[in-house]
Design a binder for these strands. Structure first.
Lengths: 152, 152
DNA sequence: CCAAAATAGTTGGTAAGACGAACCATGTCA
DNA sequence: TGACATGGTTCGTCTTACCAACTATTTTGG
């Protein structure tokens, strides 16, 4: 163990626990709609922007070959869409398709519901506080705040 | 969207984002030691207790058949150990083996280190606050507080 | 301005992890 | 005791991810 201060231990623990709980909820909600967690994440990320394949792969922490398959599958289902990039004829930009938007919205809702028991353990003020703290964490650590939607 | 209150949206987002970030760190740390995330989690859970196969499967949210394989692999590497349950000759209890203990400790340390950038975005007081809030969340929602070590 | 190197994405082969069904062995209960 | 339930394992299969090789297009340096 390097010189992490003592108290951090338990914070790490709590973080990990909540992370696992959250992931469980997310994957359940996703697979309810026959979406892999990764697919859902991709869709969520594209909610408010459009990226090139390689960029998306990078955000998701995936190999581009992996992403290829993922996008193809999603495209077949009408969830995502690839449009050729005007500037660079090698590249394509991935966009969320209408059906994907709908689906994402639904999944989002069930996630909200499923997370409610967890969240409702806190009163409104604490929720705000928590949100602030989490956002502050995200803000540092290279996770740009504008990178909405479950960036790696 | 069901009737989740409005503000929850962003809290959910923040939670998801932090969850993904945390998971990324955890799996990186695990796979550095050739551990699957699930294996690591199993070991972490057994840090301070011993469970039967079926119980462990349930905590991990896995099928028992899946767990069988996982434990066999971990046992071959001397990380876990199955000992027959005295009371029930069908059952076995899974324990962490010495090598597993060591490995878990190491992984734990790198997780701490890797999470540091995230955590250090907050001053000490905020860290405490965050920990308290997270633990409060865990406390509700059926995640018993004594279930240390990254329960589902 | 062109050849060489870099970059974007796809394809194909492979491995890991998870699932479900079928299957023993043991326990429980009527 | 016989029937049913429970604990685990085995086996076949699916999904997802990786890597290496390949095509098509930029970009760069001489």
């Amino acid at each position: 163990m390097t010189d992490t201060e003592d108290g951090e231990e338990d914070l790490v623990d709590a973080l990990a626990q909540v992370a696992f709980a959250t992931m469980a909820v997310l994957s359940a909600a996703a697979s309810e709609r026959e979406l892999s967690l990764t697919q859902f994440r991709a869709i969520a990320i594209l909610r408010d922007r459009t990226l090139r394949m390689s960029e998306l792969a990078q955000v998701l922490g995936l190999e581009k070959s992996t992403l290829s398959g993922l996008v193809v599958r999603a495209e077949k289902r009408g969830l995502l869409q690839r449009v050729p990039d005007g500037d660079d004829r090698r590249a394509s930009r991935v966009t969320i398709a209408p059906a994907g938007e709908v689906l994402a919205q639904q999944v989002r809702a069930s996630v909200g519901d499923a997370l409610a028991p967890l969240i409702d353990g806190l009163d409104a003020a604490s929720q705000d506080q928590l949100q602030t703290l989490l956002e502050r964490m995200i803000g540092h650590a290279g996770l740009r705040p504008e990178a909405r939607g479950m960036t790696a």
